[in-house]
């Protein structure tokens, strides 16, 4: 398979990942701190170990994982399909063709709004696993991408002929049988 022309997402996506992971670590720090401070039976050294390891996790996430994650997140919009690739150790590469797109959505969380980023979500009929989410796009890029895709979808030809047809193929039509009975 010829590699598509991959495009990087906005560099600000790294900051978004940092904010997300910081919040994630905080959500673990708060209950730990509450437990250590208010439950007397938990000795203080448990707290130190917990805080220490969470600090390490946080440092790793913010300074190693986030920049690397940004580097391995890429998308490509081809004339007839959209590709998205993410992951270094665990690689995931999803592709959707334009003629299977159901609808498009742009989403923005408060932090994304702060950074001027947004997510373009490409919905297909294949359920949640088959929806393509392009994260970390600058807002105007997301909108122009959406408008381009919408234009393409609108101008798609619609053929009446279905993909799946039952019955004998045309060549065998002449020797059509009259139904089987058990």
């Amino acid at each position: 398979m010829q590699e598509p022309n991959w495009q990087a997402v906005s560099p600000k996506y790294t900051h978004l990942l940092r904010i997300d992971k910081t919040l994630f670590v905080l959500m673990l720090v708060i209950p730990l701190t509450v437990a250590v401070v208010f439950v007397e039976r938990i000795p203080l050294w448990v707290g130190y170990i917990g805080w220490g390891s969470l600090l390490l996790i946080w440092l790793g996430m913010v300074f190693l994982w986030a920049p690397r994650r940004y580097r391995v997140t890429a998308y490509a919009v081809l004339p007839e399909e959209v590709h998205f690739r993410v992951g270094a150790l665990w690689l995931r590469h999803t592709a959707v063709t334009h003629n299977r797109i159901q609808h498009l959505e742009i989403e923005q969380s408060p932090f994304e709004r702060l950074l001027g980023l947004s997510r373009l979500i490409i919905f297909t009929a294949g359920g949640s696993g088959a929806d393509l989410i392009l994260p970390g796009l600058p807002v105007d890029r997301a909108t122009s991408l959406r408008d381009d895709l919408l234009k393409i979808i609108r101008e798609e030809p619609q053929l009446d002929e279905p993909i799946t047809v039952a019955g004998k193929t045309e060549s065998a039509e002449s020797q059509r049988d009259t139904g089987t009975s058990l």
Partner: peptide, 10 residues
């Protein structure tokens, strides 16, 4: 009739 195709690798 494929909707999407994903390739994963660990």
């Amino acid at each position: 009739k494929m909707q999407a195709v994903t390739r994963t690798q660990g």
